[in-house]
Design a protein around this nucleic acid. Structure first.
Length: 200
DNA sequence: TCTACGATCTTT
DNA sequence: AAGATCGTAGAT
């Protein structure tokens, strides 16, 4: 039994938190996942960030306590899990994009319609579905034991970096910024061809 | 109120 | 290459 990562872990720049979240575990009920891919939505000055244009009802959680969840619905279908980062008052978060199964594979397959392999968990919508998450988890404190929680895990041997996915509406400078981070050696990563490995 | 559009996924 | 599907933001 380990203790969830504390809010001090999340109260830093989103990119720094993103790098250190690779290898950490995400647990909810019977399902435990090892995080393999994330994206940093930074503050200030990130035009791809949902908070870039200021506070709204949807993005309220992002301005609050580090270590809480920011959940939103994408394309009317997919629930997205983000972890709020930075000090309270900064609108920043890390989007969890992919993971490997650690425990609860049967439950994951049941939730994902009996599919197999990396297709179960590579992509933010699939990941949230596998964990059984929806908008009701907006503002959920991941730092509290017993609910949805993030636990420490061994870091990967190598990281890979690339531009974030699906943000072509942003300023060119932010479209190309390498703020997507992944485990360079995991197959459980989406859009692998658009990533570059860091030094071996 | 109205309208356009997603930090996506699946199937064709 | 395109449809699904709906809450939200920004405009009126």
């Amino acid at each position: 039994m380990s203790t969830p990562l504390p809010s001090s872990f999340f109260a830093r720049d989103a990119l720094e938190v993103a790098r250190e979240l690779i290898g950490a575990h995400l647990r909810h009920g019977p399902v435990t996942l090892r995080i393999t891919e994330v994206e940093a939505y930074r503050w200030p000055g990130d035009s791809a960030n949902h908070c870039h244009r200021g506070r709204t009802a949807r993005n309220a959680a992002m301005w609050g306590h580090p270590g809480r969840a920011y959940m939103y619905l994408c394309y009317g279908i997919h629930h997205m899990l983000n972890l709020v980062t930075g000090p309270e008052g900064h609108g920043a978060a890390v989007l969890i994009r992919a993971a490997e199964p650690v425990r609860g594979l049967d439950e994951i397959k049941a939730r994902r319609g009996g599919r197999e392999g990396p297709t179960l968990l590579t992509g933010p919508g699939k990941l949230a579905a596998a964990l059984g998450l929806d908008l009701g988890f907006d503002h959920h404190p991941l730092t509290e034991p017993g609910g949805l929680e993030v636990l420490p895990g061994a870091p990967p041997a190598r990281l890979a970096f690339g531009p974030r996915v699906g943000i072509d509406y942003a300023e060119p400078e932010h479209v190309v910024a390498p703020w997507r981070v992944a485990d360079a050696d995991s197959r459980w990563v989406s859009h692998r061809s658009r990533l570059q490995r860091s030094e071996p």
